[in-house]
Design a protein around this nucleic acid. Structure first.
Lengths: 247, 247
DNA sequence: CGGTAGGGATTGTTGAACAATTCCACAAGA
DNA sequence: TCTTGTGGAATTGTTCAACAATCCCTACCG
């Protein structure tokens, strides 16, 4: 019985299955934790696109010094969530229409490649299916906010099929950037709903092991989403910028 | 005559064609300039993988405060050029074998997609050809260092066919990371040379407008390069780590 | 030989200070 | 009325000094 508490050492001091807990031990610097908080706040719309983030105010609110806060700002600026203007401060970024087009350009490349090079991985299939079902449930209960996030997760799982850490990170950043776009659109309710049936279609192809088929559907999906988004976004983004200027 | 110096204002205070000069006015903060210097130094091998970057020493050498320097460190850590270990400092990163595999995984996705979706763009064709010729010249004169950088440029131009700002940035980061690998290998001389003929083959296909054909060659190219690199790298990386530990 | 208790060096973080720049309101002039 | 200075307040850019926390190494001790 007591044996179950003794680490199972195979050889060379390697304790298998323990590396997973590495993240729990790894402490993070204050700047990174602050960046995490701000990242979450931006994602949920607490800080709206175009808004300025005052060093003084946020520093006081979070109880960290300006220097530490500035390190956090650098991180988020690098992720394109904030825009840094010299001597003016940092602002929540307002993606341009060109940004949206470029984001979809990259998503098409990444997600389609991941789906096309499909390998049989039951574990990830389950995760994809799970995300689709979460989306269904959200739509049924009319929880539009959850529907949006479920859809994001669905696409992140698709990208994860590539099995690449860097791809996962990249897609995470792209979707975080897209969230800014949706905050400006301010009507994500109806936007995602229409794509629910397509999620199922894509999932079916994937489960059938039909990579190219899934890719074709996904590409059309992304093309349509981009077109719909870009069409409605052009004015909105400009209006958001104007609103900031006029405030 | 004097009229040519007068801004042509159409309406609403808009001066057309001037936005392009925006980048020239944009000053950079000290932290970004410092990051630029360090980035260059790392690329050229002045700071070798595994080496520690002392806040004190580098701060004194560059004449900037620790705070500013730390902002620069954050930037480069985010780019995976530096590794930040809490309370131990920042080190020039030693990519793992898994990193190399992942880098090539992403490169295959990105570069192949860019080449496949080939559109007729004479300007970029010329740029690609130029890079190939620079490589030829470097090989002829036995300038192995230049050969390596020319090869990097060649691939960056291929990726640029995608027409995506984000793809360009990503590929730039990946190749910067790969440079770390080559610094550890310490023998880039012969590595790139064997791929010169393939550069030409790929270029030919591209100029012929044969996207899929070029993609096929490029994929094989990257597979071979990865295999060769990974095979030789596994020991080297471990040796580099051990050397640091034993120093 | 292994463990451990210093102690020096380095990083983590803060707070204050000052310079540089922007912003805004207001006045002066065409 | 519109543009053009001109102050001063507010904010950012950067440095500096200080202290806490942590790591690393050495010497000591069982």
């Amino acid at each position: 019985m007591a044996g179950s508490l003794v680490p199972v050492v195979i050889e060379d001091g390697v304790v298998p299955g323990l590396e997973a807990d590495r993240g729990l031990v790894t402490r993070k610097s204050t700047a990174e934790r602050v960046a995490g908080v701000l990242r979450k706040r931006i994602a949920e719309g607490f800080f709206l696109p175009g808004g300025r983030l005052s060093e003084q105010d946020i520093g006081n609110a979070l109880g960290v010094s300006r220097n530490t806060l500035r390190e956090a700002f650098r991180l988020l600026t690098h992720e394109r969530l904030l825009a840094h203007e010299l001597n003016r401060g940092v602002f929540v970024r307002i993606p341009s229409v060109e940004d949206v087009v470029d984001i979809y350009r990259v998503r098409k490349i990444i997600e389609c490649a991941a789906v096309r090079g499909l390998k049989a991985k039951p574990a990830s299939f389950a995760r994809i299916k799970e995300k689709v079902e979460i989306g269904d449930e959200a739509a049924r209960t009319g929880n539009w906010k959850d529907l949006g996030t479920a859809n994001v997760w669905f696409h992140q799982e698709l990208a994860a099929l590539s099995g690449s850490e860097r791809v996962n990170e990249l897609v995470g950043r792209l979707t975080a950037e897209l969230r800014l776009v949706f905050h400006i659109m301010a009507e994500p309710r109806r936007f995602h709903e229409r794509y629910l049936p397509r999620n199922h279609e894509i999932l079916d192809r994937i489960e059938a092991g039909d990579g190219p088929g899934a890719e074709q559907l996904l590409l059309k999906y992304l093309d349509d989403a981009e077109e719909q988004l870009v069409g409605a976004y052009a004015d909105r983004a400009e209006a958001a910028r104007a609103a900031i200027a006029a405030e």
